[in-house]
Design a protein around this nucleic acid. Sequence first.
DNA 1: TTCCAGGGGTAGA
DNA 2: TCTACCCATGGA
Length: 303
Amino acid sequence: MLYSKHMHWSEVHVLEGTEPFALKEFVNAHGWRSLAPFHWDAGDSCLSHVRALPGGGSGAWHVTQAAPTEWRVTLQAAAPLCDSDREVLLEGVRWALRLDESFAGFHALCRDHAPLRRAAVQGQGRLLRSPDLWEDLVKTLCTTCTTWARTQSMVRALCDRWGELELATERRTFPTPVALAAAGPHELRAAGLGYRADTLYRLAERLVSGELDPNTLRSSDISTDAVRRALIALPGIGPYAAGNLLMLLGRYDHLAIDSWLRRVVREGWFSDRTDLTDAEIERAFQPFGSWKALVYWFWDWSR
DNA sequence: TTCCAGGGGTAGA
DNA sequence: TCTACCCATGGA
């Protein structure tokens, strides 16, 4: 634990996970790593994130792989971290990397299907998520009815305009609900959010008022159906967005059916039939039970 | 100019 | 439950 030459606080921790996985393959399993304020340094195989801290100010974490189940985490901040801020950052790393989640059931299923065996052999199934669920709610909203390039630019614009500058990394945090509620729908629209501006503003207001605490949705005491109903009750969250968020929450029994999934499944399993319905897609995934979303993500569609 | 993109909400049947 | 329509925005 020391001050760097730029007088920023830095400290190193080692976190242990329960199941081995490769950081590089994990980070590249889906697109979330390219959404701010995540930063993936492919050369150093280092994943970073910056976030606002409850004690005020902000902090950064940088993760590299130390061993199959060991992670070297460097925390950075403008000043020494208090215990609660350190805990928030480290808990965020555990959550983002899913260090406490087991994929043994998924891998058992994978061994029965040739296009999934690679996933079992390589220990796949883990999908990166943001340290904070509010951040993933907003990011998911920004994936609706747009291109991936625009999703990236929308999320970047939110950070650039309403995020806090983290001094050690000179990167901007993801904006808090307070910041986006204060911005208002007109400013959000002007930042390129389009019709999502109104729903995003309403979502931020619900969090600020205390009407919604998204972290209650992280509880394992609630049934998946109850979580799904709560998600769909939120402004701007429909079946696709709820499916994506359930997957990020570690519940894989619902598909997030979007134009990309429709195309992949149509070409892979239905001879490119143009009249394929969502109901037929749902039925095709029914045999995979509580692992449907991961089966879609890790199925070897090139076979 | 028109169409569509890793959809959601609403009205009407 | 299903369908039709609208919702901003930018790139092809």
